[in-house]
Nucleic acid binder design. Structure first.
Lengths: 109, 109
DNA sequence: TTAATACGTTAGCCATTGCTAACGCATTAA
DNA sequence: TTAATGCGTTAGCAATGGCTAACGTATTAA
């Protein structure tokens, strides 16, 4: 799975990103707040790292994960790209049926 | 899978929501723009319907799918809920290490 | 130095997902 | 009415995802 938006959407990973917003944390620290194992959390983090949403720094035998600002900004961008059209649709209902569903007829008059 | 955000994140489904923003469409019409089969598209639509992001209307032997405005608004809300904290973090870097990582020490002075 | 402990990651398993192929059903044509 | 066509959905399967258990490695204690 290489799509940041899809990766970020998974509930456990969403929560991890939330926790990391408060500052860097080790795998164990993060896992403390979860019902699932340290291992599971680690794997979620590795996936988040793979799509550039977090990065890690090694210190002693710990690995400190933190948010990747650029990656997160990109995530925001991806969502905005996805959203705009739908938002337009919901805000301005009149535009929904005008364009290419019935191109030759005059729909409303 | 009962989480709208996770359901909406899948690329094919994102694209379906985009297409439906232009107005209601039948399964076949929607499937025309995809490399995957009509069947696959139908299943994605059923899932989107299950989490309230789209709804369907039967007419003749066709089934017209369209966006569910309330569901889409809810999706937007879920994303904003998720985002705020991270957005704060990226915009205002100073707040990152203050709160609960080193609660008893004075961190910077 | 050696044993014990604690960290994060890999191995392997089960459940879920996403797909094509087969299907049922409705509509149209003969 | 009966056959053929076209619609959307289910059946069944291969691939993927998420998990626990076992592991390797690094630090700490004896």
């Amino acid at each position: 799975m290489l799509d940041p938006l899809e990766v970020a959407a998974e509930p456990n990973r969403r929560r991890l990103l939330h926790l990391l917003a408060a500052g860097e944390r080790t795998v164990t620290e993060l896992a403390a707040g979860f019902t699932v194992s340290r291992s599971a959390v680690s794997q979620h983090l590795l996936l988040l790292e793979q799509v550039g949403l977090v990065s890690a720094r090694k210190e002693g035998r710990n690995r400190y994960y933190c948010l990747d600002a650029a990656g997160m900004r990109n995530l925001r961008l991806l969502f905005e790209q996805f959203w705009t059209t739908e938002l337009d649709m919901l805000v301005d209902d009149a535009r929904n049926f005008t364009t290419d569903r019935l191109p030759t007829s005059e729909e409303s008059s």
